[in-house]
Design a protein around this nucleic acid. Structure first.
Lengths: 202, 202
DNA sequence: CGGTGAATGGACCTTGTGGTCCAATCGGGC
DNA sequence: GCCCGATTGGACCACAAGGTCCATTCACCG
């Protein structure tokens, strides 16, 4: 984690530029189809810079991208994600998701798509991505538990399963978004996800 | 489409063996991470055989795999997929999906995962996969329209959006299945998908 | 049983890619 | 201004992967 070499302000800027450009490239084409030469070209850097800032090579660069994108996705849902205690909170959450993914360069989810790709190629990276997915689900689950306790959801509701299903619907919607190059599948998916939640209302 | 060279029975067998083994490999590791040498090893064939049966090289082989897997996925849902006219039909459909993906070697959806991967790397292949997804959604939509006409669903139901959302939930569940290496996310997702449908019951 | 085209084996080529290395330059602190 | 480490440039390497090619074997058919 701690860089073996000290970073100056200039260095930090360059490093950030590399990570962000790589994040864009990976979102567009995936990990396997993004070469270091692509990154080099997109950032106007040299090979030595890439390995200077990421001594671990491509794997370390990809990990940095995953960390960046993971935080971005979580942050985009805040503060709603932390307090899904009322139906209004869920509506806000829905709106924030649509705003984030609608404004994003390219389609699909930077977490979900990579999780799918890494599952079969890079177990370590896949584990990191699964971690983000579980944290995401955890937030949804916590909200559902709060609402059940508050009597907004039926007592027989299973927050864990319902949170998983909600996340699944969002992710599936994003996959279709990626396939159709349009946002509406995510809208439709979110509608249905919230409908499934309302179906459990007390 | 028509092979430039005639196939004997032996040849057809070899060809099928190659396609099936490649399908397994691609399901496990994805297209980009499956090399022709992997296929060679898995099928005990030579380079010349691969290009003899698939003159178009890897691209043509992958297309054959997509066609095989696409048909398999659709077939696995039949006959329920063609007549989703009652709630019992949807329950049967649910059970068939779980049976198919539970018995499958490896996790995830051979259509959805590839659609996500191909979206950023191979537009032509992506189009083919999107076609399968649209046909899939079309079947769900047809069922919903039948049910709405029959008065089983509220008149203000939008079969198109609801079908999209249902497919999204299934696909998202399969993605989580791939990530968690377990079937239960798909179960939870299907529960919620059917709940969302029932929420539109007349 | 001989011939003909399919089926197979495997060497070889080319390109793309991750990674290494060394030299040159920049830039802030003494 | 000088020094020293951070920064940058870019040649170079090793290897994997897709693809080509030719020679050999196999199997059916007259």
């Amino acid at each position: 984690m701690v860089p073996s070499t000290q970073l100056t302000a200039k260095g930090a800027t360059t490093r950030a530029r590399i990570v962000e450009a790589t994040a864009d490239a990976i979102l567009a084409r995936g990990i396997g189809a993004t070469s270091l030469d692509d990154v080099r070209t997109a950032t106007a850097t040299s090979k030595s810079q890439l390995f200077h800032y990421f001594p671990g090579g491509k794997a370390e660069l990809v990990r940095a991208v995953v960390a960046l994108q993971g935080e971005r996705v979580m942050e985009a849902q805040r503060p709603a994600l932390d307090t899904l205690a009322t139906w209004e909170d869920w509506d806000r959450w829905r709106a924030q998701l649509l705003a984030f993914y609608g404004a994003q360069h390219g389609w699909g989810c930077p977490i979900g798509s990579l999780a799918s790709e890494a599952a079969g190629t890079d177990p370590a990276l896949a584990a990191e991505l699964v971690d983000y997915l579980r944290r995401w689900r955890g937030h949804l689950q916590a909200g559902l538990e709060t609402m059940r306790t508050a009597g907004l959801l039926r007592p027989d509701t299973d927050p864990s399963r319902l949170a998983t299903a909600t996340l699944a619907t969002v992710q599936g919607g994003l996959m279709l978004t990626q396939a159709e190059h349009a946002l509406w599948p995510l809208e439709a998916a979110l509608d249905a996800a919230l409908a499934a939640l309302h179906a459990q209302a007390a």
